[in-house]
Each structure stands twice: as C-alpha cells, then as structure tokens.
C-alpha cells in the first residue's frame, strides 16, 4: 500500500467504526435477535489477560512517569533514574537495582548521618530463623542487611518486640502492609514471585512433608 491508499483506508476505518457503532446500538434498540454477536463483542470480556497488567516500561524519566507534571518546567530538571543507576548491580523487581549488593560492593556510600559523610553505620550481624508451617523454605531475617540501612529504633519495639519468635508474622499481615510489609512492598524489595526466596531462604529438611489438614485426617470417605 502506498501512503495515499493507507491514509484513505485509515479514515475509512475510522468512519466505518463510527458507523458500526451506530448501527450496532440501533440493532440492540430494536431488539434484533437475528444478528449474531461479533467476535469483537464476545471477546471483550474474554481478553486473554483480564487481571495481569504488565508494566510496559521500567525506570521512566520523571516527565513520562505519569505522576510528574510535564507542564512544570522543573520536572525536566529532575534526574532520570537510569542515569543514576548506571553501574549499579541490577535486580528483577522494585527499582531494578540490588541495593544490598550496591552497598556490599562499595558502589554506593549513602550517609549514616545527615551532615557527616564519615560516620559509620552501627551494623549487627544476627540472623533470626523463623520456621514456617507451610511447604515454602523457612524464613531467615538477617539483621546485617537491615542495620546497614536502618537503626534499631526503626523496628524495635514499634514493629517487632526484640525477642526471637515473640512476634506473630504471617503472609497476610505482610501483604496488608504490616510487620515486614511496613517496608517490603513499599521501599525495600516488593513481595512477588521473584522475591519469595529472598525471605524464604532456608531449605526444609529433605524428609519434610506438609502436615495433613484435620479435614483430611478425619475424612470419612477416605
């Protein structure tokens, strides 16, 4: 097709669509049952992905990200995330940066004190293992990676009592934004399939079996 026929067929397409739309609503008005439903009408509610929304692009510049106003001149002076992330270790989620590795590899040195660039963080290396009843690996909470960024008072005692297994934690609480979910899913790495194993990192013993539910044990038709 050359440019001209393309342009004509395009405008025809628009007109045709408008016409079809009219005719269609008219048909329903008079209750025309004979007209078979067209594929477009049937497949509308049956689109392949009803709920899965894939992010179209990552790390957009502020002017294109949908929350900054491109009409605001200063928006165009803000930094493009990809410019800042150049050379940082990457990940598959969140900002698509592995912030823990970035510190460990010395690629970033964020300040621990607002004004003094030389103050060192108060890092504590203590892992807390939380056994999980379900088949997923047990949870290991590492104090080291957390105290690189945070202070004890960010978690203790408001979010967690500082005592092993003294806190009730569940996935539903986390997904509601409580416990680990105060930060994970907001600023620290999100909760999604690709991150389950970051928290669930201690494999179950080889002979581990999921406990059978009461209803199965008592099932009279068994």
């Amino acid at each position: 097709m050359n440019q001209k026929t393309k342009a004509i067929s395009f405008s025809c397409a628009v007109l045709m669509a408008a016409f079809m739309w009219n005719a269609q609503s008219h048909a329903t008005e008079v209750g025309d049952k004979a007209a078979p439903l067209m594929l477009a009408e049937v497949s509308g509610p049956n689109t392949f992905n009803l709920n899965l929304k894939k992010p179209k692009s990552r790390n957009l510049p502020p002017a294109e990200d949908g929350i900054h106003d491109p009409e605001n001149e200063a928006t165009h002076s803000l930094q493009h995330p990809l410019e800042a992330y150049k050379g940082l270790p990457t990940s598959e989620f969140g900002n698509y940066v592995d912030w823990v590795k970035a510190l460990d590899q010395g690629k970033l040195r964020p300040r621990w004190d607002r004004a003094d660039p030389n103050e060192e963080p108060f890092v504590m290396d203590l892992d807390i293992v939380r056994p999980v009843k379900a088949s997923v690996p047990d949870v290991v909470f590492p104090h080291r990676q957390h105290t690189e960024w945070l202070f004890c008072s960010n978690c203790h005692p408001a979010i967690f009592k500082p005592q092993r297994l003294a806190n009730q934690i569940s996935m539903s609480a986390i997904l509601l934004g409580q416990k680990c979910g105060v930060c994970h899913g907001k600023v620290s790495f999100p909760v999604e399939t690709k991150t389950c194993r970051k928290c669930h990192s201690k494999p179950k013993p080889a002979d581990w079996q999921p406990p059978l539910s009461e209803a199965t044990l008592k099932n009279p038709w068994k």
Partner: peptide, 21 residues
Amino acid sequence: AVFPHWFHRIRFRCKVCHADL
C-alpha cells in the same frame, strides 16, 4: 509534592530520615 526515595537513598540511609529526622 513528589518525594523520590530512590534519589535520596543513594545519598542517605533510611536511618537519617526515619530515625534522626
């Protein structure tokens, strides 16, 4: 106002804002 966490966490640990400030 728009606050970018990514930009600030490159320069400061969470502790500066969420504990000190």
